[in-house]
């Protein structure tokens, strides 16, 4: 039996090796704290080992992995004070597109885009990160968030427009 045990550990090790970097990227963009995210990544894969028997036959691995990661994140957030909702002035003039593009193209190191992303409410930030992850399709995300691919696309669209507004607002405040 010892070799089976060793085999299981090796299998989880293989999964970790293959998937921990993009997963770390997702967790990092969700909460921006490197050492904490490294702990969370490890917790995700320990749960993979613990819950391997619950993996549904016929489904794909990556959405399952991200579902576990979302649960780990949710458990982490439960220990923190609740999020302060973002106040976006819906009556504000939409940014002039040329002016906006200028600001965007000047943001060479993506610094301003990242801080705008960090200002978004968690659910919108998550939606943008998941949907721009090349390993997950709209179908996968719909499965994760118990929605439909069409509805997910509309939500991604709204989140992108919010990101645009926050990006522009932050720039205006700074200048």
């Amino acid at each position: 039996m010892a070799h089976v045990q060793a085999g299981e550990t090796a299998h989880v090790g293989t999964l970790f090796h293959r998937h921990h970097r993009p997963l770390f990227g997702y967790l990092y963009r969700m909460n921006g704290h490197g050492p904490l995210c490294e702990d969370l990544v490890q917790e995700v894969f320990l749960r993979v080992l613990r819950y391997a028997h619950t993996f549904k036959p016929g489904s794909a691995f990556k959405p399952w992995l991200y579902q576990i990661a979302r649960n780990v994140l949710a458990d982490h957030w439960k220990r923190l004070p609740p999020e302060v909702p973002l106040a976006l002035d819906s009556a504000a003039e939409p940014p002039d597109p040329d002016h906006f593009l200028q600001r965007l193209e000047a943001d060479q190191d993506h610094h301003n885009l990242l801080s705008a992303l960090a200002c978004l409410p968690r659910d919108k930030r998550e939606l943008l990160l998941l949907s721009r992850n090349p390993d997950l399709s709209y179908e996968d995300i719909a499965g994760l968030l118990q929605s439909t691919p069409g509805a997910i696309k509309v939500r991604v669209h709204r989140a992108l427009n919010d990101l645009k507004a926050v990006f522009f607002r932050n720039q205006e405040v700074r200048s």
Partner: peptide, 14 residues
């Protein structure tokens, strides 16, 4: 263009 920038964000490394 905003979407392009979002997709091009570098992946942070552990």
């Amino acid at each position: 263009r905003l979407d392009d920038h979002l997709r091009a964000l570098p992946t942070p490394e552990p």
